[in-house]
């Protein structure tokens, strides 16, 4: 199954803006939610690049993943902050799972340096000012030191999206083969 990242790899990557979007990625995103046509892109329109064949309908689920909250409580070491544990269930029907295109460009523009991954333990860790998130391969996600409930959930989603993007990203050379 091709991921949206695979499709993105076939885009021109010039970010020329001809299509009316600020970047190729924004263009793909708009396309995915039905707000643009591939033929808006100068490269596809002119035939300079083959138009990718995408049979894609936007994912039916709004939330990036199905989640079950195990607990929400004050941080044991800093009671003014919150700690949350959720369990994410395996992505449903959509081949693109819980990846939310809306933040895809953020992912590419920001360096993913603070995402730390241990494939052998199946743990990903993302530290930030507003909370430390750990994602476990079995589906458990824990955040500590969340500023409040809302921002803690936001941090969790951010970590999951970053993770999803990282896991699905293919080196360019590989996808060109």
């Amino acid at each position: 199954m091709r991921t949206l990242y695979d499709i993105y790899q076939i885009f021109p990557h010039t970010d020329c803006g001809y299509c009316g979007s600020s970047s190729c990625l924004t263009m793909l995103r708009r396309y995915c939610i039905g707000k643009s046509n591939l033929s808006d892109c100068i490269y596809f329109k002119s035939g300079e690049l083959p138009t990718p064949k995408i049979t894609y309908s936007p994912p039916a689920i709004k939330v990036p993943h199905n989640q079950k909250i195990s607990y929400i409580r004050p941080c044991p070491s800093e009671p003014s902050k919150v700690t949350i544990e959720i369990n994410i269930l395996p992505p449903v029907h959509s081949p693109y799972g819980y990846f939310d295109m809306i933040t895809a460009d953020t992912i590419f523009q920001h360096q993913i340096t603070n995402l730390k991954i241990s494939p052998s333990l199946g743990i990903v860790r993302l530290e930030s000012e507003t909370g430390d998130v750990m994602v476990f391969s079995e589906g458990k996600v824990v955040i500590r030191r969340g500023a409040d409930e809302r921002s803690a959930f936001w941090e969790i989603s951010r970590a999951l999206r970053l993770l999803w993007a990282t896991v699905n990203r293919k080196p360019r050379a590989e996808s060109a083969q």
Partner: peptide, 21 residues
Amino acid sequence: FNPHDVAVALDTSSGVMVRSG
């Protein structure tokens, strides 16, 4: 690392039970 995170990581990834706090 927060000590609780170390404990969760040890438990979830390798089934090692330690105390934190």
